[in-house]
Design a protein around this nucleic acid. Sequence first.
DNA 1: TTGTAAGCGTTATCAT
DNA 2: ATGATAACGCTTACAA
Lengths: 337, 337
Amino acid sequence: MSRVLNNTAPVKKSTRDRITELINKYQFQPNALARSLFKKETGMIGVILPDITNPFFPEVLSGLDQEARNKGYTFFLCDTVSTNTNGDSGEQYVRESEYLNILVEKQVDGIIMLGGRINLAKPSAELVNEVVEVCKRVPVLLINGNLPGEGMNRVYADEKVGAELATQHLIDLGHRDIAFVGGYRHMSNTLQRIQSFVKTMEKNGLKVRKEWMLDGGFSVESGKAFLNILLGLPERPTAVFCANDLVAIGVMKAANKAGLRVPHDLSLVGFDDIPYASNSIPELTTVSLKCYDVGRNAADLLHQMITKNKVSRNTKVRPELIVRESTAPPGGKGLKA
Amino acid sequence: MSRVLNNTAPVKKSTRDRITELINKYQFQPNALARSLFKKETGMIGVILPDITNPFFPEVLSGLDQEARNKGYTFFLCDTVSTNTNGDSGEQYVRESEYLNILVEKQVDGIIMLGGRINLAKPSAELVNEVVEVCKRVPVLLINGNLPGEGMNRVYADEKVGAELATQHLIDLGHRDIAFVGGYRHMSNTLQRIQSFVKTMEKNGLKVRKEWMLDGGFSVESGKAFLNILLGLPERPTAVFCANDLVAIGVMKAANKAGLRVPHDLSLVGFDDIPYASNSIPELTTVSLKCYDVGRNAADLLHQMITKNKVSRNTKVRPELIVRESTAPPGGKGLKA
DNA sequence: TTGTAAGCGTTATCAT
DNA sequence: ATGATAACGCTTACAA
């Protein structure tokens, strides 16, 4: 019967018909567990991510799914937080560890990791080692992150280019007093954005001011807080580069509340290009990390890793500046007192 | 060895130690496939939904996950569109069918469906029957939807109460000229909202105008289009009740572009209370469908269905009006010409 | 062309 | 307390 279902051997037409009839009669459905047990392949991929509620992730999931679906893969969604706690309780990492285990026990064909420990500037040896061990058993792909030790397969957006694009855009508009707010200094992606921001400023002969460099969150709420801090300063920027779009929204809301108009009084650029960015009023100028493309690439590469078992080069995707309505030349009263 | 791993029988301490040592030495990890094959339970739940990119769904997923995680379940994410096509190609339903099959083959312990066919006002017999068949093999739970034939287990937000809350809020504010825009007339949730809207209007002695009842989309883009249609009418409403938050955002953007101020010139209420709603400027008054609660309830109920195999009553959760900044008494120039 | 049996990695049962 | 074995449902190899 296996033979007629899978066309794996020649069968006489008469028996084939007899079998198919029985299949229909009993509504037979094969047991994928048993098949996988024998075949040692499950068609399942595990995706470990920090928070499905953050609109960034559904976007890359969508790309992943789009590309992997027709290759016959199904996804385990492994959300490591889901309780809407922001901040950095180590709890997130133990969840990652749990899921790592569960996924290999479930014999997934591959694992994709986003966020969490792979964005840490200095992950503990244990955190790293755990992943290294898993890598020996099943293909692991890191999206927009990395782990020390080189061996990792990854697909990522070029943070530095992205931050440069954003910064240069502001400078080209005529801004000289630019703040950078958001993110966490203990995370590598934030660090890269900051470094690239600083470098671009200096390349243009501009000074970065320490008091205008604020970190401590990726959320709307933190964005509000950042702007309020800025407002309390004796000297204020005319533009703000936000570590991500959520923070930019927060800044925009706080600015609005303070009677400032964007972009007339204050220019804003975000990062990520989540759907929010084009839905806000005014629409947010931002850097697209091409999440969807990243997702598709990741699915493709992981598939290669699974089938060909070879480490075809890491993929880097180039971000793109999306100019919308939140940036303009300085000229309003700005944030100046 | 199974015995020491699962504490399923008494073992002498000496041998237990010997075994544990070997386990560590060889980094042994049990094969969940084999276990599931024997035990006839996989700890896997399939979630079929239309589009993970729609912020509504991550919210309920989050609730699901939160509740089901500690019960040991893992989720298959089955996105039936993921190509950002809106509109109603039947393709979505064939994807649902595919996933339904895949999930039973993979021997999931339960299936949760959201959106898609279970929101159809008149689903085809085939669409219905397919689900009925699956129900015979594995517990199926419908979230915010239904299928004709009564037997279905479901958890849902009370659409009618929600729409009544929104409508009455507008009326209490003093609005008499209220439009309803968004959704699809061929979908049952839209129909319920419309019916409840009409009923509430009539209960208050208000007339609903046919030209102010616009449907044909749940997206931001469609929201813009709806407002533009309204603007072209000889007589215009002072308030708009939108079928969901995305549409409300679209209306808000189009209003803004047309020089109208919300809520001064036009009051707006949304539906769903997705994160967008509290991030827009002005923040959106809306009806919270309590997605997160719905998700948690669903996980709980499904777990009962799986273990106790009993059909504990369907759960209905009561929506809540969230008054924010997009509604005010009529008084500006309104949409009046 | 088709029937039979071994094996995939577990767990439960039955002896020892 | 532990070792051996059947069974879960499938696929493949080998015989017939």
